[in-house]
């Protein structure tokens, strides 16, 4: 058994767990950045910028999310190639869309056709990260927008009374204080992000779902050297347990973080902590 679980192909499933964790580690800050930008834009005083921010938040609502995932991967890929095409081959005559084909000039292709395998994989992974960041950025923007509004108005007024400019009040007063209001929403978002990682499979990245299907299956031609019946059920059970544990650990960790952040805040939680001490 121990021998079976450490075969070369099983090593790739463990690696793909790493892929998932890497995705989470990269996506979370990127999405937060997108979200911060979106929220700041949505409450901007410049009308067009505000509209962009609000539209970004609004559009991602109301539509099934995997539709977004499926859409963005192709759309982003084509957008990159189109931009490169415009820059690198300005004197290209043929239309780019010919019937059902999307044709750009050779050197505009991404990644290059002769590039090694790992470049293709990294590019796919990069597209996936960008897609996740765009979709989750909108959710984060929504949370942060609410958190910025939750900071008591008096705090900003005090800052203005001290003669701070709009920009100073935003960076020195609003931003440090909003996190405690944003954390419940953000931790919820983190849970959702964890649970969205299996969708990587749909984006064409060889992640844990992919390997669980491959390794568990009995009839796939590439793995005939495992003469076992259909074990995919057990592989997915293992994945289920993995995700359950992961969410549970995150729950506990985020609970601790929340406790720390509430310290000394003018909220109900902070007040309760002060009294208990």
């Amino acid at each position: 058994m121990a021998c079976y679980l450490t075969t070369g192909k099983h090593m790739s499933i463990y690696w793909s767990v790493g892929t998932v964790l890497l995705l989470l580690a990269i996506t979370a800050p990127t999405a937060l950045l997108f979200g911060f930008g979106g929220a700041a834009a949505a409450r901007s005083r410049i009308a067009p910028l505000r509209w962009v921010g609000q539209a970004y938040i609004a559009v991602v609502r109301g539509v099934p999310d995997i539709a977004f995932f499926l859409f963005f991967v192709i759309a982003l890929d084509q957008a990159f190639e189109w931009v490169r095409h415009q820059v690198k081959c300005p004197d290209w005559e043929d239309p780019i869309r010919q019937g059902s084909d999307f044709i750009v000039c050779g050197i505009a292709k991404l990644p290059q056709g002769n590039a090694p395998q790992w470049v293709h994989e990294t590019y796919g992974f990069f597209l996936a990260v960008l897609t996740f960041a765009i979709v989750f950025g909108a959710f984060a923007a929504n949370v942060l927008f609410g958190a910025m509004r939750a900071v008591p108005r008096a705090q900003i007024e005090t800052a203005e009374a001290y003669g701070m400019t709009q920009r100073q009040a935003f960076w020195r007063i609003l931003v440090p204080q909003m996190w405690v209001y944003a954390l419940p929403g953000l931790s919820n978002l983190w849970m959702v992000l964890i649970k969205a990682t299996p969708l990587l499979f749909l984006l064409g990245v060889e992640d844990i779902v992919y390997w669980a299907r491959e390794l568990g299956g009995s009839k796939t031609a590439r793995f005939t050297d495992y003469p076992h019946p259909d074990w995919r059920m057990w592989y997915f059970l293992a994945l289920l347990v993995f995700y359950l544990l992961f969410t549970r650990v995150s729950e506990i960790a985020l609970g601790r973080l929340m406790k720390r952040l509430t310290q000394g805040q003018a909220t109900l939680g902070g007040e309760a902590q002060r009294k208990a001490a």
Binding site: I194, K195, A196, T197, P198, L199, F201, V209, A212, R213, G216, D230, R232, M233, F236, L237, L239, L240, Y243, L244, T247, R248
Partner: peptide, 22 residues
């Protein structure tokens, strides 16, 4: 509640499908 809220629906679908297959 923990079982169904703590794991991705996507994995639940996969698991259920292969469970039903067996």
């Amino acid at each position: 509640i923990f079982l169904f809220r703590g794991s991705p629906l996507f994995i639940q679908f996969f698991f259920a499908y292969f469970l039903f297959l067996s």
